[in-house]
């Protein structure tokens, strides 16, 4: 369905754009039909940039993103609009996704105006109401309101409904429940998981391991713009092989287990200047000489890739 091949994003920073910041370096992975893939990373890992590149909101510096053999980077004008019929996104902050001075349901009107100008107003509002019911909202309660009158959960459902109005095939869900309250977030997550039955593929971007584990078949662990580990979610959680993944799983607060006493190594420097080496080099307890070269993801068992020289070595 959607394929990323060595996708790279370089930002020019500094006074005259003299410095390069590799936000994303040579990331390759694939999302298959009707599959939920989690893209897991902490802030600054480049996970949102990848989402935005897929959505054609940020340009690609190098590499390619293909949707069923269609080169996403080259799209513009009408072709891009057609792409947006099939691919949509929902973002983290429900309140920032709405223009605060207009009513929230204006987003449906925009879709009507831009994509279905031929559909009559009556038909359209019937379709909107149907879709709102599909995402678990009562149209009477939520239409004709301003964003601040609706809860975060309702706003996120609105955005999912907006995407569904377009008969999409692929949804980028960027941290969509991280700002919601505990009691409502799980319902939005369930809704998302249910979309798969409608034939959608989803890229679920998150920093929360337990959410990724809950919803997705496969997971991609991202660290400083590079893929550290990817594979079936279960394999990654039960048998993490990259030292970063291991550290993540050990430090994430859980309700069934207390933290172990071992000190966690925090990041010390800014995410620049890793032109050649492993991006986890400065924090890695296993780092050795070879790590000054960037490791490439190696398939250590079927479908399980790890970008670490140590993990690639046969166990002693």
């Amino acid at each position: 369905m959607l394929k990323l091949d060595k996708v790279t994003k370089i930002y020019r920073v500094g006074t005259f754009g003299g410095k390069e910041l590799h936000a994303v370096s040579e990331v390759s992975f694939e999302v298959r039909d009707r599959e939920v893939v989690s893209l897991i990373g902490e802030s600054g890992s480049g996970k949102s940039t990848i989402g935005k590149m897929i959505l054609h909101l940020v340009s690609i510096s190098d590499g390619s993103i293909l949707l069923d053999d269609l080169d996403v980077a080259a799209l513009k004008g009408e072709a891009l609009k057609e792409y947006y019929r099939k691919v949509q996104g929902v973002f983290q902050d429900p309140f920032s996704s709405y223009n605060p001075i207009f009513k929230a349901d204006r987003i449906f009107q925009t879709i009507h105006d831009e994509f279905y100008p031929d559909v009559s107003a009556g038909e359209w509002s019937a379709k909107v109401e149907r879709t709102l019911k599909d995402v678990g909202l009562n149209p009477e309660h939520v239409l004709d309101k301003f964003p601040h009158q609706l809860s975060g959960g309702q706003l996120q459902r609105f955005l999912i409904a907006r995407a569904l109005l377009l008969d999409i095939k692929f949804l980028v869900a960027d941290e969509i429940i991280s700002m919601l309250d505990a009691s409502t977030r799980i319902d939005v997550l369930n809704l998302l998981a249910g979309l798969k039955e409608l034939g959608l593929s989803i890229l679920f971007i998150t920093h929360d391991l337990s959410l990724a584990n809950y919803i997705s078949e496969r997971a991609v662990i991202l660290y400083r713009g590079c893929v550290a580990e990817m594979g079936a979610t279960e394999k990654i959680f039960t048998n993490p092989r990259h030292p970063y993944t291991q550290m993540l799983i050990a430090s994430v607060p859980r309700l069934d287990r207390k933290w172990e006493a071992q000190a966690s190594v925090e990041s010390k420097c800014a995410p620049t200047g890793y032109a050649s080496g492993c991006v986890y080099y400065d924090r890695c307890p296993l780092a050795f000489g070879k790590c000054k070269r960037r490791p490439i993801p190696l398939e250590i068992e079927p479908g399980h890739f790890v970008a670490c020289w140590k993990a690639a070595e046969p166990p002693v």
Partner: peptide
């Protein structure tokens, strides 16, 4: 940089 601008772009505006 607000998301609603991105959303508008994704509506083909």
């Amino acid at each position: 940089t607000r998301d609603f601008v991105d959303l508008a772009r994704m509506s083909g505006m």
